[in-house]
Computed example of a mutant assay.
Amino acid sequence: MMSKAHIPTYDICSLSMGVQVTEDLLVARFPDYLEAHQHIHFPHRHSFYHLALFTAGEGTHTIDFETFPVKPGQFYFMVPGQVHSWFFSGKINGYVMNVSAGFFNAFLQDPAYVERFPFFSGVSAEGVVQLPKAAIPVATELLEAMLQEMKHPQGYSQDMLRLLVLELFIQVTRNTGQAPSGQEPPHNYVLLRNFRKLVDQHYMQLRLPKDYAALLYVTPNYLNAFCRHMLGKSAGEIIRDRVLLEAKRLLINADMSIATIAWQLNFADNSYFTKFFKKYAGVTPEEFRKNIS
């Protein structure tokens, strides 16, 4: 594990593996990717969307301090900024995809289109998808088609790759029952996405549901009831969880004092931050740091 260093953040070019049709997309088979980047099992972040499909092997994959057992048919979807690490036992097989946030911008009218997919919510558990057995060949065939397109580019290769990536996202959503069923009004998904985006942008300054309700033009009571309906949590819990997650991310850096982290997260003082962290994480910041060092 990391101790005396910041969590490294990799951009898509730093993990390049040779000739690419576009600097915004990398697709590789897992053994090749691990061989080229043997250091990346330590906790790190990406500035891009990072996907991993496992077809063979075992181990663990930790995303934002939540650990999942690796199983064949498991597809991991990570958004920019999430902290993750993996530890494998035995031979691992599958695919890795790195795709920039701007890859689709020249192709789609809606720049936020990709955020509609449920596995790109930024919540660790929602980004871990178990593919049904029949859906695994569908996903692998699309990934192999991307590899061939990148190896032998033709006219409109970038657009073909965009189509293949989008088809992969749609097929995974359909084959795992995550596609909207029609029972939930479409505007509910838009409101949820907008609320989560606002929390991610303003959690350091805005801590009360009423602040976000005003930005969303709804009442605080409506926002709380809506969040409980959609996620089983109140709006306040969602805001609190985001603050707690960032605190954990910062605590990995042993060079930052607890007081500095408290100040950066906009807590009134170190004591208040410590009480907050222990109440919701179950341990003090110092104990959490010791456990991950």
Rank of each mutant, 00 (worst) to 15 (best):
P118C: 12
A247E: 03
L26Y: 08
L34N: 06
D24M: 02
A28C: 04
P185W: 11
E23N: 12
P118Y: 08
L244I: 11
I136D: 07
R162M: 01
F68M: 06
V129G: 14
Y203A: 02
S271H: 13
V123M: 12
Y49T: 05
Y212K: 12
Q158W: 06
E126S: 08
Q205D: 07
T140F: 00
K210E: 08
Q205E: 09
L34I: 05
A179W: 15
V199T: 06
S47F: 12
E66M: 08
N188F: 14
S85H: 06
I63N: 01
V283S: 12
R45I: 01
A36E: 01
V83Y: 12
A106F: 13
H41N: 12
G102T: 10
F42Y: 01
I170A: 13
T9K: 15
R207H: 08
I7R: 10
I238F: 03
I238L: 02
L164V: 00
L53I: 02
E237T: 03
P69I: 11
S89T: 05
L161D: 01
F119I: 04
R196K: 04
K275Y: 05
F68T: 10
L142F: 04
S89V: 02
H84F: 15
V96A: 04
E237D: 08
Q201L: 10
N98R: 01
S14I: 03
M204E: 03
E141Y: 03
T173R: 12
